[in-house]
């Protein structure tokens, strides 16, 4: 069998600290995409021991986070899915398919406002909100994990551009804030 090396798509990148915001690589742990078969959402939720969050929502439960991830799709992160979902859903391990970053601080929203058309005001995107959208021209997912804290994900193949765009926006916002 061929032995493949496990490599980190953002290896060598260091956290970027600026006035008002810190940009960090986020380790999301195992990622499992779950597409329940028609009418099986409740059964999938029961098997997972959790209710599948409504569209636009993400729920943290211990190590595990369940995030609405598109039409009839949910992403389980932070913990492997042990439940047997055969006959209930299409399940794929996407752990190596994504990269993620965390933006933390009162200027986090300002940074993202430069990169995505999402309305991220607290009224439209409160803590626990999740969305698929774009970051620059890249498909991306967004979760508000705290008042001033966002997790952002994109495909692994775009890791370099992803980090470049985020770091650039952090520096731009910092400069405007007199950093």
């Amino acid at each position: 069998m061929i032995d493949l090396d496990l490599t980190d798509p953002l290896a060598g990148v260091s956290p970027l600290q600026a006035p008002g915001v810190t940009l960090m690589v986020a380790g999301l742990g195992p990622l499992t995409l779950i597409l329940p078969f028609r009418g099986k959402e409740d059964a999938v939720g029961a098997a997972l021991g959790a209710e599948l969050p409504a569209p636009g929502r993400s729920v943290q439960d211990g190590d595990r986070r369940i995030t609405w991830f598109g039409k009839e799709a949910w992403l389980v992160s932070g913990a492997a899915v042990e439940a047997d979902l055969s006959g209930l859903a299409a399940v794929t391990d996407q752990s190596d398919g994504w990269v993620a970053a965390t933006l933390d601080g009162p200027a986090a929203r300002e940074v993202l406002a430069r990169l995505t058309p999402l309305d991220l005001r607290p009224t439209a995107f409160p803590v626990g909100a999740a969305a698929r959208s774009e970051l620059g021209h890249m498909p991306a997912a967004f979760i508000r994990t705290g008042e001033d804290r966002f997790a952002v994900m994109t495909f692994r193949s775009m890791a370099g551009t992803f980090w470049h765009e985020l770091a650039d926006a952090v520096r731009g916002v910092a400069a405007r804030r007199g950093g």
Partner: peptide
């Protein structure tokens, strides 16, 4: 109908 009001570039 699922996501709410979104920018045209997402479509």
């Amino acid at each position: 109908p699922i996501c709410g009001e979104r920018d045209r570039r997402e479509f």
